[in-house]
Nucleic acid binder design. Sequence first.
DNA 1: TACCCTTATAAATAATATTTATATCATAGC
DNA 2: GCTATGATATAAATATTATTTATAAGGGTA
Lengths: 295, 295
Amino acid sequence: MNTKDLDYFHQLILQKNFSKVANFFNVSQPTITTALKRLETDFNTKLMIRDRVHNELTPTASGEQLAEHAEIILRQLNIAHQEIHNLTQQQIVLGLPPIIENHYFPKIAAKLADNELLASIQTVEGGSIALREAVRNGRVDMALLGSVEPLSYQTLLAEEFDRQPFSIFVSRDHPLANRKRLYFSELRHEDFVFFTSNFVHNNAFNKLTRRNHFRPNIVFRSNDTHVLMKLIAENVGVGFLTNVVDHYNDHVVRLELLDDEQPEFITSIVYRTSHILTPSQLQLLTILHSTLETD
Amino acid sequence: MNTKDLDYFHQLILQKNFSKVANFFNVSQPTITTALKRLETDFNTKLMIRDRVHNELTPTASGEQLAEHAEIILRQLNIAHQEIHNLTQQQIVLGLPPIIENHYFPKIAAKLADNELLASIQTVEGGSIALREAVRNGRVDMALLGSVEPLSYQTLLAEEFDRQPFSIFVSRDHPLANRKRLYFSELRHEDFVFFTSNFVHNNAFNKLTRRNHFRPNIVFRSNDTHVLMKLIAENVGVGFLTNVVDHYNDHVVRLELLDDEQPEFITSIVYRTSHILTPSQLQLLTILHSTLETD
DNA sequence: TACCCTTATAAATAATATTTATATCATAGC
DNA sequence: GCTATGATATAAATATTATTTATAAGGGTA
């Protein structure tokens, strides 16, 4: 069976129109007709209902089932191409969310350079969710992902290598600045500065506010940790961040949370179960683990 | 790309010999040569190392990677065929391990008959492990599986619907017969009758014997529950079985176990995540749940 | 060197996919 | 009702691709 037919079929399901699909692939319309007929003969069943009265084209039950498998097959094929391409280029495409890149990558980079691995690593930035999809689709080989819950995906393998608590960051001038530890509930009436769209931080933050039954007053949002730190220093608001974020700023004080069952910032390395690790990729994994693992 | 090439490639990896693969598929030897060359052109890489000196044929790194994906693709294609076949036959192929079939199926069958579903169900017997593979490969659409741990598989979906403790069964004439409850450790010096090869029972039994540090003396093995029950009645040995096994025999007494953290016989229904449920399959699931679910 | 086993190559042939041209079906507008 | 239009189907011609046949080439061993 030719996978081109599955390509046509897949688009036919999406576009519901033979001529448009033909156009999409720059082939003539009968090509699509015969391709579908081939599949229907091959699977010995009708795959599409051509309702000429209502001018609709819908898959049969078998069609829907095939569409499901077609998608998996086409994805695998795509991954295979990407993966083998990276392999021949001796490149590892590594996905890194900005915060993790900032905190962990410098530590790793030196070791990688020592082992002459740095040149073969190509990093891609992105959010946790986008990167997970990129790994799934083969666009990225491996990704370091942050999460609140331990990661577990179909077809992906996640190895956790670090866990860090979240903390509260306040200005030296803030009334709480002399405290070392506090409960999250004490922040009920505080102004916050927070990430615009950091999935993991949002997740953890929401958990804590929901558990303590308050709606936090977020006075400013940014995705740049440095900006947030400066705002905290200026006492514009308090921050909720991981220890992963470097608190280099002299005017900022870190306060530990005393709450039970705090969310944690879990860092894992994720790759496809179908991905075969080359020696240099194994070496990369070893270096990641040895450099980063909490012990 | 033609999936036939992946078929050839897959066998080439297994058989490591062009001529033999050609023979295997009843095609001429150059067919395999050109098929591989097609793949190598398509993926723009060498896939196989033809070492004529040592007369060996081994995959390159890319070759191994492709083999991985080829297998997934070929499996999906196979599943698609099976699945669509069952769909057009309006048949659901349901896998049942003997014990589960004995205990649960009669209860369900009546309800299924009421809903005119019984005729569309085709049962297949097999052990838990074999059935799981059969579901994965599309030979079976759904299976009821027993297990000691909650089931969780890649690409398969498991819905638990019942949990039963294991119990000890002894003859009326046995010294322990007047007891209602006992600890597993009290059975240290007993003779047992047990299953020959029931994966789940073995698993649970081993857990208990290991935890209590003794090697059980198994005096007779059979896979037939009725035979085991008769032997227990005759006081040949004591039995370790689920409540799932009907203890209809008048000469047999059931004793509950008092141990903490006892293993349980978990029954789940398993099907592929990629499997699209037809209305009648959904109905089957509903009936299974409503008939069997512990509440 | 002759012989065997394995894989590669080239030309011929067979099989398959695609295009072109045209037909059919069903609706909508007039 | 007639015509135009949009969508899919069919048939024959053509183009593309896969396979076979025949043979060569590489490398080992008797």
